[in-house]
């Protein structure tokens, strides 16, 4: 029983991480696919006057109104491309939209052993992985908007 339990625990820990890798201002970032609810063309956002840092607009998608987290402004970057994309993520307070570069996001699967601690302070991250010389941070979606 104990051995089975331990094996199960080890398997759970070793579950590969499925990541969606995308770009904002040509900077590569990743997010767990389990926290992604969709990708679509970016429609013009509707500004909402307010005082919440980096949440200053909404997008309307049919009958749904989603708050926009301005990830590019948060990172002091500017989204690149003429056909920008809308990344919808599952935030604990409700679904949220982010405008990302037009570059088509890529799916990657990683062994958890390849995930390391992200030491940068510029964004909330669950960790990071190395791709060549680049360190790609994995966004901690639940902390977006609360660390600003």
């Amino acid at each position: 029983m104990l051995r089975t339990g331990r094996k199960h625990q080890r398997d759970a820990v070793r579950q590969p991480w499925q990541l969606l890798v995308f770009s904002v201002g040509e900077r590569r970032l990743a997010v767990r696919t389990s926290e992604v609810s969709g990708i679509s063309q970016w429609n013009e956002s509707i500004p909402v006057a307010g005082r919440t840092p980096f949440v200053t607009a909404v997008v309307r998608q049919g009958q749904t109104v989603l708050p926009v987290f301005d990830l590019a402004a948060f990172l002091h970057l500017t989204v690149q491309g003429s056909s920008l994309l809308c990344l919808r993520v599952k935030h604990p307070l409700g679904e949220m939209a982010m405008c990302i570069d037009e570059e088509i996001p890529v799916l990657h699967t990683f062994d958890p052993a390849a995930i390391q601690t992200y030491h940068g302070k510029d964004l909330p991250a669950e960790g990071s992985y190395t791709n060549g010389l680049d360190e790609i941070p994995i966004l901690a979606v639940p902390r977006l908007g609360s660390t600003a």
Partner: peptide, 24 residues
């Protein structure tokens, strides 16, 4: 949306779908 957590929560009572946009 709850992500708006600043003073604007006092300013608005909600959002209305209007034409192809919204009205606060």
């Amino acid at each position: 949306p709850l992500q708006f957590h600043g003073a604007e929560r006092q300013w608005y009572r909600g959002v209305i779908l209007f034409a192809k946009t919204i009205a606060l």
